[in-house]
Design a protein around this nucleic acid. Sequence first.
DNA 1: AGGAAAATTTTGTTCAACAAATTATAGAGC
DNA 2: GCTCTATAATTTGTTGAACAAAATTTTCCT
Lengths: 231, 231
Amino acid sequence: MPESDRPLVLSQTAAGLLRDKILRGELAPGTPLREVIWAEALNVSRNTLREALRDLVAEGLIEHRPHHGATVRALTSAEISEIYTIRLTLELRGVTCSAYASKEAMAELVERVEAVQRAALARDWKQSGTASLEFHRQIVSFIGSPRLDELFASVAAQARLAFSLASDARRFQEPWVARDVEICSMLCDGDRAGASRALELYLQESERVVLEAARSHGLPRPSRTAAPAPD
Amino acid sequence: MPESDRPLVLSQTAAGLLRDKILRGELAPGTPLREVIWAEALNVSRNTLREALRDLVAEGLIEHRPHHGATVRALTSAEISEIYTIRLTLELRGVTCSAYASKEAMAELVERVEAVQRAALARDWKQSGTASLEFHRQIVSFIGSPRLDELFASVAAQARLAFSLASDARRFQEPWVARDVEICSMLCDGDRAGASRALELYLQESERVVLEAARSHGLPRPSRTAAPAPD
DNA sequence: AGGAAAATTTTGTTCAACAAATTATAGAGC
DNA sequence: GCTCTATAATTTGTTGAACAAAATTTTCCT
């Protein structure tokens, strides 16, 4: 039944709800998203849900094989590596473009690295991780391309999906804070070559750690087990 | 009527037909794509057409404003500039990564630049443009990320859309052939710094020319005129 | 003309149905 | 007991009709 609230575009709000659940880690990678079940769980028609699913496929959050349906995307180790390849490409270019960044943009960068520090001081490691991604996002924004910004956001969302496997959040986030700070100060000093080197090492190590976590914690197991209930 | 042939996934073959028509230039940028009209033109239901349209939106070939429907994407000059920003980001990184490219990949690069030369010699400027894009695509592929390859393909498709405005194809393509060859030989010699410089100038000038062509030829005019018939 | 109100078009969404493909189940035979 | 196959049950792909809501066009009034 078409009920209650009248949001601007239903299929997109439905996509939004699903996106949140996935990013929040409530739906483990590999989980199948059955159309009828989620249609009534989100209180939309099956057709509308399908449109929502198509949007999420475009975002890279879910996979869709014809006649098999949609599943929460489970990253292979190759895909995790690719995430870092993409990050390196975008962030290195961002560092180069920081030469032409406005005063405000640089101030925003400092602002964000401070947010990382605040979260770390408060021992809020989840927030620290989010803030760190925001910091790197700001670096990418120096390029000045909304589309590349969007790509980074998409990639970052998937990275967080991989992060969610990490058992101990502290050991996972703490070492990076100081390095974010270092990169930021190098950028402020105009030492772009140094920032590039630091960034490259940063991403290499991060990739190694995430890959390790993913490997130990369980990679795309074709588990045919029952799907968690929507509610 | 669900007729005759039984393609694997209808909505995607429908999207394919539309994609071709757009890329072929049969549907001018800004052209509205009315759902009922194209649904029966492609012989699919409206729901299926909607799914096809959503796919094309994800590809960046069409725009979609809620309650206004889909239109063939008309690039603003800012968006044309962004195409070159993205190309610069991807291709420069590709040049860097060419250091680790396999022998086969480098051979493929030479292969493609030769295809550009052949087409130019045959005065087939349309083919020359396509081949040139393939050459640059190969540079990007050195990065080794399918997703970035896909991004380049998407951006290239839109670039061709902008190219289609060019009045004189020869003056438009000829000057670039020699520069593609130069960049290729620099890469083969391992002179990545030189290749980077040449590439940056190449893209800067290309952007200038395309922007000029687009400006003179007519930018996103909100023409409310009748849409061309599907057939 | 100008602008408000009504008629029309177009999109957003739902529902019910069915074909086709996939997966699960139950036997048959060894 | 095990594999292989035929059958049933599920799930996706697609359709067509219907209607509400938003946007566009037309009409009509001043």
